[in-house]
Design a protein around this nucleic acid. Structure first.
Lengths: 359, 359
DNA sequence: CTGTTAGCGCATTCAA
DNA sequence: TTGAATGCGCTAACAG
């Protein structure tokens, strides 16, 4: 009574034949218990089990129903990088939480920004995509759009036509800069995230900023500038260094360069906490005491921000909530006008203080 | 020239009709460029694009080919919890790295340990599963097995018949305990991970240990005991507290209880760095200085371990590599005997020192 | 409560 | 090089 076929060849039909009922009835036994008598159902299920048939083949089902039970997630960065970024992790945590309660799986789709992007995004068996912080007009984003599926966009405020979740980066950055300005800082420097998808050279010119493909970088920069201009300082006098890939190491190097200027800046605005941590390390290496000699303000409020010494003054943004809301929007398949802007809050801790008196 | 049909209804057949060729040829245009003339291919592709057809439907393809291009990942814990655990994150990072180079997607499958487990694991459209630290005989694991797909097992040394990747937990724990014993510690306590899938009560009896459903907990405990017995100490005198879900808070509470004993233990063996960090915090709250009053040894060597003050003495295990190797084993579809045991290394830092002299 | 019919969209024979 | 035929495994109508 054993079959020669490999196990995967056992199908609904086989067990229908063995049970003496129709395929429909077997299908119902698995998917619609109320559609047949408990006894029959039990009999079918037990025969199925004997035959090593455990559940309807997911691909057959997906093709038939058009639903996959999974949502896709596309990151800008290389995946291994994304999983090393506390910001992305926290976001993921939020997404995962909703997936879990909704019993949806989460398909993380790698994109290489080569030709091959097509492969993975096109082949993804998902009911919709969450797109996290992709640069505008990236190949990956184009591919996602082509899938004609529901999309929720995160941290790309300039993309229209899709529900999105974001924060007011400009305003948040404004509050960070204002904080330092109120503490009498006159010489500020900015440690920036990437403006463009191309590898940064360090130097940032106006052109690069205006045509930024990462809106959040642009917005945060703008927020800093709003505050700086409002305070009557010369925007041109503000040093700015663009760091590659939100890396602490890159920020470390950038900060060393910044702090070698004379007169030395007294306040650093970092566009992320990781960058701020890099700056912190650089300052420490130069023997500067914080905040006495140098104030540093971060962005994101990752968990580590409150654990380092000195604890980091930073802009809190609800990272996990970003994830939960994005997932909820996607699962509910809401219209574009349901976009959400989440609140931020300046967390004043010990890495910022009154500017040193001019020497 | 617009269509009334929803976009998803455009199919290979439609564009075949529009182009005046057969379905096969269209399929070839997408999947086998060498099977038709460049001109024809180009023509087909451009007509397809005009019609809003962008790529073959992934579900149809999957059903036909039997391949999905995705690998599944099943965690023990709730997903949102897994994404909060540095150990799991690092593992994920490794898996993601390989997925990326192999252009495979990563499907993270939530399991609730209810009935509903079935749903997600059964419906997962994947070519194989990586199973991370599931308790033996868990529902989730059973469901995975039922899928009859390639499986790679991580941190479950007792599961036979599948390729696995793990470390020698027993030996690693042995080195950790030996380290303290050599520093003259006589009164040790263990802050333990969960032995059983059921919520721990704090107290741990022999029964609970022997029948542990988490082999790594059992193995680490055994390793500690090996060293303790070897040193001639009384195993029964070693305090042990079992913490819920590798949480720092739980370890914090457990440590407070442990340190209230008289005579107070001088060395704590924590089965994870997170637990060790909780212990550290508890010790600090009690005003103990480390390592003068109390030595703490962790396990895992998560990034934070080397960043806290004092830096944590701990057992390094190659977390990221666990992920890369697991993914590689799965993608290569290797036989069970290809299992890998990765090396560990005791990292001696500042949280451990010579035992205080007896008072 | 049960069975019949009819595709879902595709890739693969095989024959032309 | 191209095309016709076939079925991957399943579920949704509808009819009994």
């Amino acid at each position: 009574m054993t079959h020669d076929h490999p196990p995967e060849s056992i199908t609904l039909k086989d067990i229908a034949k063995a049970t003496g009922v129709s395929r429909t009835t077997v299908s119902n036994a698995f998917n619609r218990p109320d559609q047949l008598s408990p006894e029959l159902r039990h009999k079918i299920l037990s025969i199925a089990q004997q035959m090593g048939y455990l559940a309807p083949n997911p691909m057959g089902r997906m093709l038939r129903t058009g639903r996959t039970g999974a949502i896709g997630l596309v990151f800008h960065d290389s995946l291994s990088y994304a999983f090393a970024d506390p910001t992305a992790i926290a976001f993921l945590q939020g997404v995962a939480k909703i997936c879990e309660t909704a019993q949806a799986s989460l398909l993380i789709v790698p994109v290489l920004e080569d030709r091959s992007v097509q492969q993975t995004v096109q082949q993804a068996a998902v009911d919709g995509f969450i797109v996290y912080c992709l640069p505008n007009q990236s190949d990956a984003f184009t591919q996602v759009l082509k899938r004609q599926l529901p999309v929720v966009v995160v941290d790309q405020p300039t993309v229209k036509g899709f529900p999105s979740v974001a924060i007011d980066d400009r305003h948040a950055a404004y509050t960070a800069a204002t904080h330092l300005l109120k503490l009498n800082h006159q010489r500020l420097a900015i440690i920036s995230l990437e403006f463009q998808d191309t590898v940064p050279s360090g130097r940032v010119d106006r052109q690069r900023i205006q045509t930024a493909s990462f809106p959040i970088t642009q917005q945060r920069w703008q927020g800093y500038m709003d505050a700086i201009c409002e305070a009557g300082l010369d925007p041109e006098a503000v040093l700015i260094e663009e760091c590659a890939g939100n890396s602490e190491e890159s920020a470390f190097q950038a900060t060393l360069r910044i702090l070698s200027h004379t007169p030395r800046p007294t306040g650093i605005l970092a566009m992320s906490d990781r960058l701020a941590l890099g700056a912190l390390r650089a300052a420490r290496q130069l023997g500067l005491s914080i905040p006495a000699d140098l104030s540093i303000v971060g962005f994101d409020d990752i968990p580590l921000a409150a654990q380092v010494q000195p604890r980091l003054t930073t802009v809190h943004q609800p990272l996990i909530e970003k994830g939960t809301i994005a997932a909820e929007l996607l699962l509910k398949n809401v219209p574009a006008h349901s976009s959400r802007v989440l609140p931020t809050e300046l967390m004043i801790r010990e890495s910022s203080g009154v500017a040193p008196t001019r020497d």
